[in-house]
Design a protein around this nucleic acid. Structure first.
Lengths: 195, 195
DNA sequence: TTAAATACGGAACGTCATTCCGTTTATCAA
DNA sequence: TTGATAAACGGAATGACGTTCCGTATTTAA
């Protein structure tokens, strides 16, 4: 007998529903914010609420799962950008992607500040997964000589996040985009008259 | 006919209930956070929920009213401290009072980030009312030579607020108090070896 | 093919915020 | 003091929501 038991694999319909729920939740959260009724999500996934609760016993479990999935997608985008574009443009395009991610978190910052311990690990998760991705892009761009080499990935992510999620609820503002543009210009060599 | 009509004064029982509701809400919010059921507040005020809604049509109206009342009380405390203590101690004691205020805002920061426009004016209200109070104390202390004169009141308030309300939910932590202590030491002349 | 394990659906429950309306109370002029 | 009237009160009713429960349906493995 092994301490870690090899349980039967999850049933096919269970996996299917699980993915349907995640997709539906992602869409509903993006449209109506994280406060959207859980029934709406079950409906969009064409699943009963009982099934939803089987997979995500608490509402926060669903929110956490969607958050992680989106963080992972954002991290994966970094590799894709790195492959398809030269270092400078890859970094820029990925930051745009990251801005989109942050801006889509309408209402989530409220959840993060709600005091519910379920959300405590999320900021760390974000940093742990996105900082390495950002760091690779930064280093590649620095090596190519298009950005400064003294910019730390966590600082950059925090700065962009703060510039983009300021007060209101609605999506990304023009002001946010302009501020991030300034930030990016500050990172470039050629904007500072340096070699 | 006058444009501004002189309506009859509010009825006596109405005023009484209004105050009872504010007091009850203050107590309940402090005990159970701003998410406490509205019925609990009505009960503690010995009033029906209908009466509560007559005075505060939306839940947020009650929260806003309590917030403002507490800001006002904190601002008023500044004058009292200034009268009763010498400048250095007055500033220190008032900051303690301010810390208490910030720490008691359990759950309110979530409301502030909820995107509900009802709460948008609150941060400005806080600054407008507390910064002048803090400024007077700072200037008095600076004139008396016990603190530096280059500290701006809004900066001080923001710094203390950030040090005290960081992540958890529970009341003020020992760590917060220590950090604020350090901040205050940094404001003193005698801690820097300056005249 | 069949029995057990697993998963499903959605009605039912308890909790809230909010509304509605019949009843009570304070106010003021007579 | 009294009576009419506007103002305010109380709490049952409503509707939305999160969560639980359990009888039924489906998948899996032998």
């Amino acid at each position: 007998m092994s301490g870690t038991k090899a349980k039967r694999q999850p049933r096919a319909d269970a996996r299917r529903n699980m993915h349907a729920l995640l997709d539906a939740a992602m869409e509903v959260f993006a449209t109506s914010g994280v406060d959207a009724p859980i029934r709406e999500i079950a409906e969009k996934a064409e699943v009963g609420v009982g099934t939803l609760y089987r997979h995500f016993p608490q509402r926060s479990d669903l929110i956490v799962a969607v958050f992680r999935k989106e963080v992972d997608a954002c991290a994966a985008a970094a590799s894709i950008m790195a492959e398809q574009y030269e270092p400078g443009e890859a970094l820029e395009r990925w930051l745009d992607r990251f801005i989109e991610f942050v801006a889509a978190k309408r209402g989530l910052s409220a959840a993060l500040h709600s005091g519910d311990p379920a959300y405590d690990p999320l900021p760390a998760y974000l940093m742990e997964h996105l900082a390495p991705a950002a760091s690779r892009l930064l280093q590649a761009a620095a090596t190519a000589g298009v950005v400064r080499s003294d910019v730390e990935a966590p600082d950059l992510l925090m700065a962009v996040a703060h510039l983009c999620s300021p007060d209101g609820k609605g999506g990304i503002t023009e002001a946010s985009r302009r501020m991030v543009s300034l930030l990016i210009d500050g990172i470039r060599y050629d904007a500072r008259g340096q070699p």
